[in-house]
Simulated assay, not measured.
Amino acid sequence: MANRASAEYELFTADDLRLRFESRSDQPAPDREFGDHLLNPDIVQLMEREGAREAAVLVPIVDRRDGASVILTQRTQSLRKHSGQIAFPGGSVDKTDPSPEDAALREAHEEISLAPEEVKILGRLPRYLTTTGFRITPVVGIVRPGFELEANPAEVADIFETPLSFLMTEANHVRASKVWGGVERHFYEMPYGERYIWGVTAGILRTLYERYYA
Rank of each mutant, 00 (worst) to 15 (best):
G141Y: 04
A104S: 14
D26F: 04
R80C: 00
T201D: 02
I112F: 01
A14R: 02
H82K: 15
R53M: 13
E118I: 02
A115S: 14
G181R: 12
I197D: 07
R18T: 11
E107H: 13
A14Y: 01
Y188N: 10
N172W: 05
T169W: 01
D97S: 08
R135Q: 10
E184Q: 12
D158E: 14
L125R: 09
V143K: 07
Q77P: 00
R18C: 01
A7Y: 06
K178E: 08
E117Q: 12
E111D: 14
F160R: 05
P41S: 10
E161C: 04
K95N: 13
P191R: 08
V200F: 00
Y209R: 10
V44A: 09
A2G: 08
L105S: 06
E189N: 06
A104D: 15
P28K: 05
I121F: 00
T76Q: 11
E118W: 05
R211K: 04
P100S: 02
D63F: 00
Q77C: 00
G181M: 10
T132H: 09
L17S: 07
E148R: 12
F88H: 09
G123W: 11
G51R: 15
R124C: 02
P191T: 08
D94H: 14
E8M: 08
P41F: 03
A214P: 02
A87K: 11
D66Y: 06
A103P: 09
S6I: 07
Y192W: 15
D26A: 08
G193R: 11
E155D: 03
Q27E: 15
D16I: 06
E107T: 14
E50A: 12
S78V: 10
D66R: 15
V93E: 13
E101G: 03
I159R: 03
G90K: 14
G182M: 08
H173D: 10
Y9F: 13
A214K: 12
Q85N: 08
G84D: 07
L122G: 00
R24C: 04
K120G: 02
A5P: 01
V119H: 02
E210W: 06
E161H: 05
E33P: 01
Q45P: 11
S6R: 07
A103C: 10
T201Q: 04
A108H: 09
D102G: 05
A151F: 03
